[in-house]
Design a protein around this nucleic acid. Structure first.
Lengths: 334, 334
DNA sequence: CGACTGAATGCACACGTTATAATTTTAAGC
DNA sequence: GCTTAAAATTATAACGTGTGCATTCAGTCG
């Protein structure tokens, strides 16, 4: 059986109270007894029972990292970058708990006793119900990646609108005028933000926004492939396509090649995310770098802060995107 | 404050013991009282306190999913496929806890009280120290992806050797004779298995194994790029290359194109994993499908079994790989 | 030397749950 | 209607830890 503070108490000829205090560095304990107890504790390989600790302390030592969904709609690199970022910050003292919101039929098991704090990598407005529940439970929460209206919630988002706008402006600067967009999953905030940025760039440069140049995808490769197919079928097809993420850009490029056309000669393509692959496509993909790992790290730090000293809102934190110019864009022919 | 069984007991005019039994469907309770109590419980929105439960039950309701490392050496798709597989099986009643072994400086916090069971997605022999610790603690464990010698440990692995062998044989069938291999991270079991299968195929077909045709990578795209560079620099370069995973294959293809050569015309390439991208490279990648998600699911099911009724070894479970033929391989020129 | 002070330690309880043993209620048998 | 067995319920202890309050101890001051 694993040793408890009572076992240590016996060995040290003190009460378990003293042991508890000594191990928690209470100022009430004389230095020599603390030393002695610490010595014995490490000798017998004592590790505290977190269940007992949690029970009395009303803390769980657990941080929940939630996604909108683990099963669908989340690209691998996005998923793993997020976990890597969070994991690098959260000390092993904490349990790191990972789930998708859609794994739950009801949220009754999500309550204060079980989570010290929650990090939500949010992709959909539908997450609001979850957020509301968490807030109501009084659990500190940080929402990443999607801006929420409620100012009392701490929010870290990338500036997708600006990123998309920059990407589109870059295409315009390269003399493109027939520019299409392949959009992401309907209802995702990111989808909307990127579209808005894209449209803003066109309007700012007085380029008409053509309805048939806006096609829907769902953030995965096959959808990018199909969407590009529809664009290429158009009577006058675009000379450049902004894809709302890299995965769809890869699917789109694939479609272009399959029709015997070239990127960027016949059609220019730009992506969004700067996922690992984008450097190794042929041609390499011009894309908007979105610092997911950085966002996650910041989010993790913030939740730790919130747990230790709850404090009100600083307003949402925007992390800048950055256009990474590679080789999938050139000036249009003739 | 969240309601406890004592609160319910008061409302129902019974003892808290009865409430506990009623909610746990003990046969000692009369049907009508059970009904009444269940009614009240859901009315007040009762949720059990798992810390208290764990304390007395000596169970943690936590399952640990460990990787060799979260920070490095694990490709995104591998990582997320694993989590998806496990997540789909593990009920929300359980905490799903995810960490890398290399996050720990010592394993003292990994003990029976904290984990009901552990799933290890293992990539390196160095993990044995961790495995040994877990076994010694008496925690049920399932090791995925890497075969361990100890027969008392439950093991689920893909048949990498056979998969690699099939891939190489396919190249041979396509009349290739100058066949190279780009290997994975040194020391990883998977690296060795795939090399062994590769070599076996060559030997079986009496094709000499040339030392300069075996180059090292580390499973990421840049390393595949570099390794291919070294192969292309050879005086008589190979006509086909077996890459030990898809990521390296993508890097390798990129390198080929950059030198103005074509895949598969000038050089054929085959990968390993069948990660999501392999369908959308140009040309699409012929590769060995390794059912990571399936392995993870099986592993998750197995750990649940082991937790409920500990039982000895059935021997390692092999899950078959499958060659997926696409367009990155053709017969060599001339 | 006794009263007082402050430091160090111990006692007893609390946290929310399950398990064990004891008790009460119900049903059955004659 | 009484005894007895069975069924249903309750009282109490336990899990391992932290904390308020009581207690002891050592030292100081008068």
């Amino acid at each position: 059986m694993a040793p408890t503070i009572k076992d240590i108490a016996k060995l040290a000829n003190v009460s378990h109270t003293t042991v508890s205090r000594a191990l928690n560095n209470s100022p009430l304990i004389k230095e020599v007894t603390r030393k002695k107890i610490a010595e014995i504790a490490s000798q017998v390989g004592y590790v505290p029972n977190y269940n007992a600790k949690s029970l009395v302390m009303q803390r769980s030592y657990t941080i929940g990292l939630f996604f909108t969904s683990i099963a669908t709609g989340t690209s691998s690199s996005f998923f793993s970058d997020t976990i890597r970022g969070v994991n690098s910050v959260i000390d092993v003292e904490y349990n790191l708990f990972i789930r998708g919101i859609d794994d739950y039929v009801d949220y009754s098991s999500i309550h204060r006793k079980r989570f010290d704090g929650i990090i939500l990598m949010s992709q959909s407005e539908a997450d609001n119900k979850f957020i509301y529940h968490v807030v109501q439970q009084g659990i500190p929460i940080v929402v990443l990646n999607r801006q929420v209206e409620d100012r009392s919630i701490f929010n870290i988002v990338s500036n997708d609108r600006e990123g998309a706008c920059n990407a589109a402006e870059y295409l315009i600067k390269c003399r493109h005028r027939e520019i299409a967009i392949i959009e992401g999953v309907e209802g995702f905030k990111s989808t909307q933000e990127r579209r808005d940025g894209f449209i803003k760039a066109l309007i700012d440069h007085k380029i008409p926004v053509r309805h048939e140049y806006m096609v829907r995808g769902n953030y995965d490769m096959p959808s990018g492939y199909e969407a590009m197919g529809r664009l290429l079928d158009l009577k006058d097809r675009p000379t450049a396509v902004f894809c709302s993420n890299d995965d769809m850009a890869i699917g789109a490029m694939n479609c272009v090649f399959e029709r015997g056309l070239q990127v960027p000669r016949d059609i220019s393509i730009v992506g969004f995310d700067d996922s690992g692959v984008s450097l190794f496509t042929t041609p390499s993909l011009t894309t908007v770098k979105r610092p997911i790992e950085q966002i996650s790290e910041q989010g993790a730090r913030k939740i730790l802060n919130l747990i230790s000293k709850p404090v009100k809102d600083d307003g949402p934190l925007f992390i800048n995107t950055k256009l990474v110019i590679r080789k999938s864009v050139s000036e249009p022919l003739g």
